[in-house]
C-alpha cells in the first residue's frame, strides 16, 4: 500500500517545478504552462487527502474542490491566453520581461 507521504512529496515536487517555471521562464505561454503544473499538484493533494483522510460515502468535499479547481484552471488558461494574444498583437512579443508599460 502506498503511504500518504508519497503523494504529498510528489505534489510538493511538482508544485516547486511549476513555481520555478513561473519565476524563471521568459516566454509568457511557458509561464502559463507552469501554472498548470502547479494547479495539478494541488489537485493531487486534494484527491490524496480525500482518499486517505476523509473517505466517507456521503461527503464529497475533496471532489468538489477538484471540480472547482478544474473550472479555475480552464478560466485561467482562457483569460491568460487572451491577454497574451492581445499583448502580442500590440507589442509583437511574448517575452514576459518585455511587457514593461506599467513599470515605474
Amino acid at each position: 500500500m502506498i503511504p500518504l507521504s508519497w503523494y504529498l512529496i510528489l505534489a510538493a515536487l511538482l508544485f516547486c517545478i511549476g513555481l520555478f517555471g513561473v519565476l524563471a521562464r521568459k516566454n509568457s505561454v511557458a509561464v502559463l504552462m507552469s501554472v498548470e503544473l502547479m494547479l495539478n499538484a494541488v489537485n493531487i493533494n486534494l484527491l490524496a487527502f480525500w482518499r486517505y483522510l476523509y473517505l466517507t460515502s456521503t461527503a464529497y468535499n475533496g471532489f468538489v474542490f477538484v471540480v472547482v479547481l478544474f473550472a479555475v484552471a480552464a478560466a485561467e488558461t482562457a483569460v491568460g491566453l487572451a491577454i497574451i494574444i492581445s499583448a502580442y498583437r500590440s507589442r509583437k512579443t511574448v517575452a514576459a520581461e518585455d511587457f514593461t508599460a506599467l513599470q515605474g
Binding site: 500518504l4 504529498l8 512529496i9 510538493a12 517545478i17 520555478f20 486517505y52
Partner: peptide, 24 residues
C-alpha cells in the same frame, strides 16, 4: 527559492503525525 520551498514543505509535512497514514 524553489529548493527552499520544497525542503520546507517536506520538513513541515514530516513533522505531521499523519504523514505516513495508510489508505482506508
Amino acid at each position: 527559492v524553489c529548493l527552499g520551498l520544497f525542503g520546507g514543505l517536506v520538513y513541515i509535512l514530516s513533522q505531521w503525525n499523519r504523514f505516513n497514514s495508510a489508505a482506508p
